[in-house]
Every structure is written in structure tokens, then in C-alpha cells.
Design a protein around this nucleic acid. Sequence first.
DNA 1: AGGCCTCCTG
DNA 2: CAGGAGGCCT
Length: 661
Amino acid sequence: MDSRTGFEQDRDCVTLGHGQGLKLEPCFQTDSLLPSPNASPMPQFLSRTMAAKNLDPTILFPSSQAVALPHEYKGGACPGEEAQALAFPRSRAPAPVPCAGDQLSNQQPREQLCDQHLRAKRARVESIIQGMNLPPTPQAFDMSPEAAFRHERERGGEMPQESKRKPRVSQQGEGAAGRVTPTGGTSHAKGCQQLKEQLCFLEQQLRWLQEKFYQVCDSEDAPQIQEESEKVQPLPGKPEDRLNKDSATATSNPHKAPLRRHVLSGLEEAEDRGDTGGLPSVVRVLSQALKHELAVVTSQVVDSVLKAVWPKADRHIQKQHHSLPMLGPDARREYSAGGKCRKPLAKPSHMNAPGSLGSLQAEVLPGALRKSLGSYASSFNSKGVKKSSQVPSMGYSLGSATPAQHSQLLSQLLGYSQHNPWGSDSHESPSALERDCPEPLNLHWGTIKLRSSTVRQQQHHPLPLSPANMESLVLLPAGRDGHSELPAANDRVPFASTHMQEALTPGHLKKAKLMFFFTRYPSSTLLKTYFLDVQFSRCITSQLIKWFSNFREFYYIQVEKFARQALLEGVVDACTLQVSRDSELFRALNMHYNKGNDFEVPGRFLEVASLTLQEFFSAVRAGKDADPSWKKPIYKIISKLDSDIPEGFKAAGCSQELLHS
DNA sequence: AGGCCTCCTG
DNA sequence: CAGGAGGCCT
């Protein structure tokens, strides 16, 4: 099914006078799509001024700035512009500042961890050495539920902290997952009870070990044993290292690393060192082995208890990777910009079931988020400046991942363009026309003003999502029947909560308009890949194509108008016709496609517009407009100047996000 | 025949 | 921006 446009097909085989010189090497690096590790992607979202303050210089100033120019464009009628472009002073972006949040989230727990670890160690060693006459108290191992969470966090990540801000399942109140922090409910009491039982069992084991231990030592050198055991700092000997290594193994495979093995290996190690001189080494090995084993078993116990007590929370945590908080049905727009298909399609199916998966689509629509979550919405003004700190209304953490995801996606959307507007497999190079651009293009490419509320939260993103899988996470909404319509999307992670629109919305229209800055002749295939939240039908496809047709119509009419006007004004050299951001033509076009002016029109578009203007000018001046089909050659030329659309435009929800921008 | 285009009209 | 007509292309 080749649904490409006629012009697009031409693009592949037809070479035109102007087109020949345009096949140039891409100006930007493809790998720059991945944000630099210490660069927040968010600033890419912002307007130029904001971007200048925050952007990673490596994003702003790709190394490959060299522009290869076709000979017909060099020098000649437009002297100085090339040099102007190259000499344009680049604003300096400050080096990325390490996120304070990172420091907070890393340092403090680390200190806590050490402190707790030391205390726990000491407690365990003392317990071992001094005997087990103590009553079984959970505190001895700091195994309160809270501690269990801390322990889990130490082991695996930051789950507990983030879980406290988990998405609500309904608006009525917090779901089970919203109460991750134990507060003494019945299930928690049950969990505590189980914990106690587990600990009793552990202590029994300890007693048994202690007896064995004393059998070995034969009470020969008890004081020395104690002295050795209480040395918190391990000797630089190998047993410690060995144990630490084994510890890692045992953690992942606890059942295959029984205590005896540690003891034996430790003993062997001691003997290998020739350290047969005495029990102290053996004791130390035993002590370390015990500590290690205790840690492992303790972890297991905590894990199992937690799983038993909060299975839902566990599942919920996993689910959070794929879903986002639910919103009410009014969080979505019912308007359809569709034409004749509007009536049957305009009614989004997801509005029938408030709180069900069907309404989840709203979750990935930041605009809708803003609409329904008033506090969240009102937190940001139109310039993306946070007015208040009312983030908590989101209330949950992977909820907090939601805006973060949006941010990242949208930053990709509009940030990719800064970095590499042409994408990886760019077949069109901007270089040929960039000679005219007096400003750093990469500052203009697809920068969007405002937004970005949640750049801060990205720093604490609880999920280890790379930009790549972030993208796949949101980009590929599964249909209601669970499978994507797009084969290309099948290998990606379906985003369970994303829902397919059955009608095109004003958001989609705005998105299409912005996309027009990049492509004038999108094929239906391309459109399908960029409107992933739309359930495509013939009608939808036709409508989208019609939109672009209308866009083109307006575009060509405007350009032709200005070309004729220039001719009337006595312009002689077509090359002097350049569309800048100050020109009337640009204003007219920008008003049409970018009404809110919240999108930084890519410089490439200015170049295409300039070329279109020149072509019209030349054709009219040559009297070609006498031919009824005199525009067709121009259309062909322009159709070859499409550039890749930033990947971020694929992001589900970006339509709505743009709508509210 | 179907898809997409431009052009024209409302 | 949508609808329709007419044309081109596969």
C-alpha cells in the first residue's frame, strides 16, 4: 500500500533544478536525540530565552556546524549572509548544574544507610556473641515495617518514597497503593505479626548457629572473640572481599549460598593466607558469614512479608510502569474537528466509563490534566513559569512520572528539533538553505515556549526510563482491542492507559499545523505514525490529508501574493527575497499555523518559504503564470523540501498539550 | 478502483 | 476548514 503522495513519489526519483543541490549531509548528529546525561531535556521545551539559560551547551551547539553549500547558492547575489550566519554570536549556556534533588535523594539515604547498617551490624554481632537470652524484639534488627521499606530501598531503589506519591485509582480516595506507608491498619497488623513470626524463626536459627559456634570455639578464647567481633571496620584481608562478592551472588540467588559455604570458604581463605594461627580469623569469618546470611534472610523475609501483606501494592508498583492516573471523563474534549465523519466518530468511547481504562487517555493528555486537575493546571502560566507549588495535587508518584514523561516526550518533541531536526535518516538536508539563516538554527528548531512544568520531577523519575523507552512507552497506544494498528509499533511497549481517539480534535489540528512547518506533503503513512493516538480510518486519513492540502493552499496563496507584490515593488533579484521572522509573509503564515505563537518556527521553514517565494517570483516574472498549470513545477520543488518531523510529535498527548499552550 | 492531488466554492 | 469536482497515478 503505497499511500505516498504523488509529489512524494516524485521526490524519490525526480531531480529538479533546485532539488539537485539540496542533497547534503545532515547538519546535526543523530545521536543527539538522546539527551546528554546531565542535561535536562526540559529546557529544550522552553522559549529561546529560557533555553539559553538552561540548555546544555552540547545540545545547543552541536559540533557539526559545517554547512555544505551547493555551488549555486554560494556567494553571488546574496553575499555576506553566509558569513553572517557563521559569525552570529552564540549565546553561552551555563554548564549544567547538578540537580539539588539528586543530592538530596542520594546523600541523605546513604548516610542513613551507613548508620543503620552499622547499628544493625553491631546489634547482630552482639547478639551472636553475647548469647540469645534476649526476648525476641524486632527492633534488634530494625525490622519494623518502615525499616523494611528502608531496607528495600537500600536494596533496590527508591520505591517506597515514590510509592507514597502513587497515582490514585479513583477520585474517591486513595487506593490500596496509596497507603503504602504502614499506618496500623488491619492488614498492617497482620503484616507485623508475620514479621514477628519470621523474626522468631530467625532467632531460633541464630541460637542454633550460636551453639554450633561455641562448639567450634569451645569457649576457648571468648574475650578475644568478642573483641574481634566488635571490630566494626573489617580488616583489609581477603575474606571480607570474598564475602562481599559472595554477598552479591547470594542476594540474587540466596538459596544457593548457604551459610556453611560462606563459613567454609572463609575458613579456606584464612588457611590459604597461612592464617592458621588462630580462632580470631575463624571467628571473624564466621561473624561475617553470619552477618551476611542474616542480611540475606532478612531481606527475603521482608520481601515475602511485604508481598503477602501488600500484594496489590506490589502489583500496582509494577503497573505504574504502564499506566497513569485516572481522571474524570470530563478531562477530555469532546469536540471533533472532523468533517463528515465527525458525527459518528466524535463521541469518544472512553467517556462512557469514568474511572475505567477508557478514561485513561486523559491521563496522557497534559492539557486535559491541566483542565481537570485545577491545581496542577493553575500552577503554570502561559510561559511555563511555575506560579505555585501545588504539585501534590497530582498526589502520587508515578503520577509524578506522568508529567515527567510528558515533559520528556514533549521535550523530545520540541527538543529533538533543536538538536537534530532532520532525524536519523534525514534525506533532506537543511544545509543548502541554511546559508540564509542569520541565527543559530538549532535554537529555533521547534522550540516551544512555556510548558514544562515538571522538569524538576524528572530528576527523581522513579523509573529507569531512557528517552528511548520513554518514547516507546507513550508513543504506542494500543487500541481498545489491545493491539496497535501500526505494525511498526508492535515491537514497542504498549501503553495500556493510552486510548485511541476516534476523531480528530483541535489539538490534532494544531499539531498538524505545527507539523506543517516541517512537512508540507506528509504521506498518509507518515501521518499515521505521528498521530498515534488517533484510531485511523479512511475518514480520519482523508481528513488529515485534507488538512495539509488546505495548509498548502493557504501557504501557496500567501507566497504567491507576496511574490507578486514584490514584483510590483520592483524587486529585481529573486535572491533578495528572503523570508525572515520579521517579514510580513512570515507573520501571515505564522498567524495561520502558529496562532498562539507558542512554537518557535524552525528556521528551515523560513528557508523553504524563501525558496517558495523566489520560485513564485521567478515564475511570475517569467510570465509562466499564463500556463494554467504553472504552479505544478513549484509544487514539485517544494514537495522535495520536506524535512523530518521531530520524534516528539509522536508523543501521545502532545496534541492536547499543544492545544493548551 | 482507490488514493491523493489541486481547484473551486461555501 | 469542509465538500465536491476533476485529474493523475498506480
